[in-house]
Design a protein around this nucleic acid. Structure first.
Lengths: 161, 161
DNA sequence: ATCACTTTGTTGCAAATGCAACATAGGAGA
DNA sequence: TCTCCTATGTTGCATTTGCAACAAAGTGAT
């Protein structure tokens, strides 16, 4: 009867766990900010716009908001307004959805394709620069540990030019 | 004369680097969100409030905004308004600064101390829960690699109850 | 003292965000 | 069919944010 029972006791994070927490917060913010700044300085919109365009291209076919929201890890109302803004800029097009009249299908416009490609020309080197302090071997190990931390078994690379 | 010269060529990130980028973005967002949600569900304000209070406690003495802004990695105008809101809630106090009449010194109130302590009771187990998928050995290695990625040589643990 | 320049912090305004309420379609069972 | 429940998006409103402009104090040179 040392343990109170079934409930996991509320634990204080060990020192190594606290170190991960601090490092993860600082480093992710730092590299994220570095890349976002590079895009902004080049006159481009923020990374989330790129990601929407890229996911739509990857899908290869007009896609419903809900099917974007999951991989983007974004709330429905956030995506709703993000898409509105992108549509206003002529980057995506809404197509009526026959099967389900609630939603619509999203597709990049020619301008959308062009923008994503142009952004990649800044995004790619900025990413490389922000992450240059680890070599490929360390990068693989880091990615493995991060994915384990996040409960992700195996992922194909989701970013590509 | 194979190389064009001094300038580093704009590189496409290698596959391992892209994997780190994706994993870092996803996992940091995921665990961050998990902890923030735990705090919100418990009726507490967001993590940045905790961090301000904690940095003020750590300093052990009334501290100027600019000396907080650096460790917090936050813009001056962001801190300015964050402190305003916290002051309105009676969590921090502004003290006139004799040496430099531009600024002021910040100090937690009794209510501020109490709130930080109460938040830690939620924060700590939430952090532990969010990071439970790696053991201490992996956590140390992960922290080491993250700090290397961020160009941080060695850090003492900045979060504590 | 005066001038220019830097440091430190704030603020007006437009844009973006979070939340909760809403709208509407789909689906399952009576 | 009708009703109820769920799924999918959107929107009104208050709060928060980003940016650029501003303000005021310190610093240093002449």
């Amino acid at each position: 009867m040392q343990q109170s029972g079934l409930k996991t006791p509320a634990r204080i994070p060990s020192d190594p766990v606290q170190r991960v927490w601090v490092a993860l917060g600082r480093v992710s913010q730092s590299v994220q900010c570095e890349v976002e700044t590079a895009l902004k300085d080049a006159g481009f919109p923020e990374l989330s716009w790129y990601t929407v365009l890229w996911e739509l291209e990857r899908a290869g076919t007009p896609t419903r908001p809900k099917d974007l929201a999951i991989p983007l890890f974004i709330l429905p109302y956030q995506l709703s307004r993000l898409v509105d803004r992108m549509e206003k800029e002529g980057l995506v097009r809404k197509i009526a959805c026959k099967e389900d009249k609630r939603g619509h299908l999203l597709e990049p416009t020619a301008k959308g394709y062009a923008l994503r490609k142009a952004m990649w020309a800044i995004y790619a080197p900025a990413m490389d620069e922000a992450l240059k302090r680890v070599n490929d071997k360390e990068a693989l190990e880091l990615a493995r540990l991060l994915n384990k931390l996040g409960g992700i078994e195996h992922v194909d690379c989701a970013d590509k030019g």
